[in-house]
């Protein structure tokens, strides 16, 4: 357990900057997460009628296939970005 009460201010500023960078990446990722599943897969499906992915319409494809692929890429990209961020701020293990 790290007790930060006695640490110099620059340390705290740095960890605040690390956290806000992390929260920013999370918010962008969640926007994509929401857009591919709830957006393309559910809410926008009627509007996208006619656009096909092979034999499926785009909304249907995102609901049964596409969103899962996007989720996968999203997690690995997040993990990669965070590893980079951890090193930048010197908080990696």
């Amino acid at each position: 357990m790290v007790d930060r009460t006695g640490h110099v201010t620059s340390d705290r500023t740095s960890s605040n900057a690390y956290w806000s960078a992390n929260v920013r990446i999370i918010l962008i990722s969640l926007a994509i997460w929401f857009a591919c599943s709830f957006g393309l897969g559910i809410l926008l499906r009627p509007a996208l009628e006619g656009i096909m992915v092979g034999g499926a319409d785009l909304g249907f494809w995102f609901a049964q296939q596409g969103s899962i692929y996007v989720f996968l890429v999203l997690i690995f990209v997040y993990a990669w970005l965070m590893n980079r961020l951890d090193r930048q701020y010197g908080v990696d293990e």
Binding site: V2, R4, Y18, G90, V91
Partner: peptide
């Protein structure tokens, strides 16, 4: 302090 510590991967 606990919340701050879990937000930092190191350790």
């Amino acid at each position: 302090d606990l919340v701050e510590s879990i937000r930092i991967p190191r350790g």
